[in-house]
Write a protein that binds this DNA or RNA. Structure first.
Lengths: 206, 206, 206, 206
DNA sequence: AATGAATGAGCTTTCATTCAT
DNA sequence: TATGAATGAAAGCTCATTCAT
């Protein structure tokens, strides 16, 4: 009981620091951000941070860990529940788009570091994206087997399918104004875009 | 004559340094890369770099400048020549994909910095992407007017159209193995993907 | 109470550094002195200096500030109290000579920088010497009006009056042995020297 | 003949560099001045300077050497010719003041370095000032013997005598405007100032 | 003899990390 | 546990000096 309370306090403190870190780092990058800035934003002293994190990299690791928390479940769910393709797409799109929107600052922190650090990239990719693609590949395999989409390499299909969403993310990260202000519009437009792009071409079947 | 030769020598030296810089920075990021590392990779002394670049940022600027050299021409060309949509897409896709492939390391250097630095992002975005989108928007406006694609906001159409390509870039940057090893395959698959996704839905027109 | 104690600690630290700086700089000049040398002489680490001073120039500024602390008061006092000329001279001389003696090392630090940097010269001059001359000029104007000294430009009189003192300073700075070892003797001799030099020439008045 | 011509060429080159050096150094000090700046002002390449001077310090040495060229002769002359005191003073003052005026920039270069470097100070002092004071001391000894001035330590008398001149130099170096613009006036006023200050006090003799 | 590109030692400054309080 | 002053390694950058041309 006491331990649990203590642990919760510690978790709260860690979260406080992580929140502050994300806010500052998302504006200027991890390297350019100093421990002092993070501590100052969190309203604590520099040294205190080292009671909660081993070192500066530990903060980044914690930020990444937070990112992987809410992932891949609905994909599994969709697959498990055998929802039809159209429903799956719209669910998938709105979930991913909502996710990107809500964790935008975190992505701004993590993605540059992933691009710059091969090890980190591999680690996060295998942890977050690989499982997602794995599930999607299985899903697409089934769809192909069912004849609902054209027969292609499922791995390729999964990545083609994901690409517009990743592209939206890229545009958001690059501060494209139209995308930033019309996020909802893109969330609406994407399902049909994907559906048409992936759906079996009726004419070619004739 | 002599001046030209001198200038060429200087340019060659600058390129040598820029090449070395791209190589090192693409592996560990701009901030983490030291002048010593770049100099060492280029086979010269630290101080020599400052004969060719004002400071460390000057190197980044030069890398960016190199990125903007080969941009936006064929888009203009396509638009100017009024090529039909199908041809335009496949040309556009293969050009962009080839570009991304060849300047991959440079993108690995520049993109993280763009994401982390709002000013840099704006500058590069307006220099490279904005013109591209501007041309594409005009193109899509015409297509809509001609009834070749469904009537939507041209800005949105342009971004939807670009998103799978940007998504491919994202996957490359995140070291997705399937994308990296099958780049050619994706270059082939994308035009049809885009064509179907954007083309006027015949059935819905009936 | 706590704050005051903290502030005193900080002041003590600053003084420690300034003392060390004066000692080292007076021996080899500001430019030639490294932060490492000052820190080493103060018995602290390089970085610690930057907790107390913005940068290297900040140390010089602090040294100059220390110089201006004890200036110009007795001149004002003498002027205000309308002391007779003879008393004024001997007071003025012994005060100035004592001042130069006690702040000799500081002068060795500041003066070369003043000579070499026009901006600094102007700043310090206007802060320290200009007020002194201004008061002295008023004093000499009165003396001339009272017929106690020959009628000359008060500005010139003030500077002539100050010149032997500044000359003594110069000789001290140039390590003249006789002046250095007989400072007290010069302090005694100067008042009469000045009195005779400036006093109204009785014979010429006849 | 050929050698002499060659040597003259070399001397001319050296003088060109020294002139450029004095100009630049007098504005910002020796340390802050770069070889590049001196070379640029002299209209030659950096490396060329090293054909005429061993290193940067060699330039300073040459500047100092130039300073000692025109010294101490008229003092000797005056002493040798047994000119009367009044004439001696006015000659001495105008010579010294003219010297200071003409070699002002050089003094601005050399003096700070002398103050900052004990070895240099000793060297220059012994070379330039010590002989002057030595001759002056002899002169004052004679004057005292002749009863023309009060009996004091000749060394002290010589320094008191020199102090107003050194004070004028100090004021010039510190950019005192009144002194700078009225140099001629001070040259006129100083002889009487010194004469009265040093002359035997008739009243006290009564 | 003149050049100026190359060199690299050495400077100022920053900042992650430690630790006495 | 929280603090923040102290630390010192390591960075970017300058510039006296060298030397191939």
């Amino acid at each position: 009981m006491r331990d649990t309370f203590q642990e919760q306090l510690i978790q709260a403190r860690r979260n406080l620091i992580i929140d502050a870190a994300i806010e500052v780092i998302s504006e200027q990058g991890f390297q350019r951000t100093t421990i002092k800035q993070i501590a100052s934003k969190a309203g604590i002293a520099d040294g205190t941070i080292y009671n909660y994190f081993k070192n500066k990299d530990g903060i980044l690791t914690a930020i990444i860990a937070r990112l992987s928390e809410g992932e891949a479940e609905d994909v599994n769910a969709a697959e498990a529940e055998q929802v039809d393709f159209e429903t799956f797409i719209s669910t998938f799109v709105s979930n991913r788009m909502a996710e990107m929107d809500s964790s935008f600052q975190t992505l701004k922190v993590v993605l540059p570091e992933m691009i710059m650090d091969a090890d980190l990239s591999t680690q996060v990719y295998e942890q977050i994206y690989a499982p997602m693609f794995s599930v999607m590949e299985q899903y697409f395999e089934e769809l192909i087997a069912l004849g609902q989409i054209d027969a292609v390499d499922p791995a390729l299909a999964a990545r083609l399918f994901a690409s517009p969403l990743l592209g939206m993310m890229m545009l958001r990260l690059l501060d494209d104004e139209h995308v930033a202000t019309n996020w909802a519009l893109y969330t609406e437009a994407l399902p049909e875009f994907l559906l048409k792009a992936l759906h079996k071409d009726e004419k070619s079947a004739e």
